[in-house]
Amino acid sequence: MTPLLDVRNISKRFGGLMALSDVTFSVGSDEVLGLIGPNGAGKTTCFNVVSGNTSPTSGSIRFDGQNIVGLRPSRIVRMGLSRTYQATSVFPDSTVLENVVRGAFTRSQDSLAGSIFGTGASAAAQARDRADCMDILEQVGIAHVHDQLAGALPYGYQRRLGVAIAFASRPKLIMMDEPAAGLNPEESQAMGALIRAMHERGRVSVLIVEHDMRLVMDICHRIIVLDHGELIAAGSPDEIRNDPKVIEAYLGTELVT
């Protein structure tokens, strides 16, 4: 069976810097794959290349059997690959519920003409969208603040809202860029439980970049490791934990010098 996301030999060069060189990996359907590596290893670049925010210098990326290199990010989202951002990213001046409704924008059955004239069909479609998005807010545990402005939410809630927005498009694969960044240990653990629950309920694959090793080891089926733009290891959490190359990348040379 072909994997859901198939990344082959991608490289990305910024001037003289090879941010990614010859990276190959894949994400199967119903899999949670962790992507780890020290700071500056190229993890976020890897994300941006896959999500279409920047294009790779070379290599191929196939999602769900189709080439996605060169497509606009919105097009890739509509194919079923959505992402969250490292920093909190919400629509600050809209309510929490409206934020999620926007995440579900491409799924909405509301029509342009209907919504301009305010027809009954349009109102019904909007009510369905809202009900559906309230369900998602329940799942991420912030339904009780649905009518507050997103910009006024506490940080931990904003992070959850970011997940809810990405989830609202009903993706086949969701890429999460450090979902636990800035969270305290308990919040981080709760975020791990949330990701696992969404994965299990929604049958959605997850590609996750994270520095919190406990979280990664906990929820990932498989882990790949980047260092200086190169893939240095791939395997189960246990294999990665004991891989000498990974230990060196994290602790090695820098301590010596």
Binding site: V77, R78, V90, F91, S94, I165
Partner: peptide
């Protein structure tokens, strides 16, 4: 809705599938 999403946060709007 698409216009205002772009106004508030263009990168997130794109990630919501809004062209």
């Amino acid at each position: 809705r698409a216009f205002d999403s772009i106004h508030q946060n263009i990168d997130l709007a794109e990630s919501c599938g809004i062209d």
